[in-house]
Nucleic acid binder design. Sequence first.
DNA 1: GCTTAAAGTTGCGCATGCGCAAATTTGCGT
DNA 2: ACGCAAATTTGCGCATGCGCAACTTTAAGC
Lengths: 210, 210
Amino acid sequence: MREQKKQATREALRAAALRLALERGPDNVRVDDIAEAAGVSPRTYNNYFSSREQAIVAAVAGERETRVAAAVIDRPDGVGLADAVVEAVVDQYTASDAPGQEALLLITTRPALRDAFIDTTTAIERPLTEAIAERLGDGDPHTARVLAASVTAAVRVAIEQWLQTTVSSFTAGGLVVPSGSLPDLLRATLAPLTPALDAAEQRALRHRHR
Amino acid sequence: MREQKKQATREALRAAALRLALERGPDNVRVDDIAEAAGVSPRTYNNYFSSREQAIVAAVAGERETRVAAAVIDRPDGVGLADAVVEAVVDQYTASDAPGQEALLLITTRPALRDAFIDTTTAIERPLTEAIAERLGDGDPHTARVLAASVTAAVRVAIEQWLQTTVSSFTAGGLVVPSGSLPDLLRATLAPLTPALDAAEQRALRHRHR
DNA sequence: GCTTAAAGTTGCGCATGCGCAAATTTGCGT
DNA sequence: ACGCAAATTTGCGCATGCGCAACTTTAAGC
């Protein structure tokens, strides 16, 4: 039906939320304001976002979940599953850094926003499950689900650590050494999972040859 | 002996929440009722539990998080890390089944309670991180954290699946084959992670020998 | 073009979650 | 035993989240 209109209002809410948060500071924005700015009723706002923070964060997170999944599938078959996943994740998380630099600064300072941002990582789990299942061949969808959940959890750990070092390197005025760029952090946290990804890939290959 | 009282009220709230939920059905229990039954103000209730469902679910979950961690550490050194973790998790999740059988039945039916129960899995992550770090030797706490997060995620997947098949085997009147006992499900979901756990263990060993 | 059913939106009402500051309890030193 | 400081409980107020039912819009069938 009107998928168009639905996505349009969704986008309008995102934009309005981010704009208002940047203008007045996130604490001075009520849901009613966002709804009004987007031209919908407050009740409708809650049909799209279940919390006030979600809209603001969604503006930064964008459609990361779908892009990650697509990126995993798009890697050529020659690349191992582990590399495909890691690089796809890193790409999508570094790509989305550019647009909302100032927004990220805002997010890191408010605990509620930080939590909401961390929660966005879980959104990649479902698409990632399908992407991994596709690469493994549909032998065992169960394994794909567990691997996707693990990768998602590792990404969350990376983001948590990144946010933590980011904020402390601000408050401490540079005394704390930032533990590395986000890409490096992501690679580091995902590294311990490569054996699991490799093993699943090998199993799938062996299974396919029989 | 301040801790005593705090844990006492916590326990009182748990018990009251579960009792009332079983008596009247979970939808007919207000937070005020639980608080009153436990002899504290409603506001204090929220100092202990951040949602109405948490108290009910906590009565079933108990202190699982600490027990899992202890169980992991208690396994003899001869047992591999992977086995130690898997068996510790399985033990603690099957042990806690006995007490609240009827409570679990209640939980499976209400979506809000199901979600709250699923959320309890995340509580094991922090203690599990320390337990794994202990076993790996404090070479790289980073790895322990990722592994713990992954294990936690896998457990969550198992619980989700278990709840789903449980409820559908009720609604469908037995047409759906329950996909196995909870212990089996846990072992199955954790299986794909063993390569990662083994690899970390080997790395730690090699590192220790140098 | 008109009718009709489904999808989406809105207003209402209620309970929840939580920040804040005052009041109360607890533990400790003297 | 006394009083002080820290921790905890409590009341208050406000905004949020969401179920529900009425209302409006959209797409499709005839």
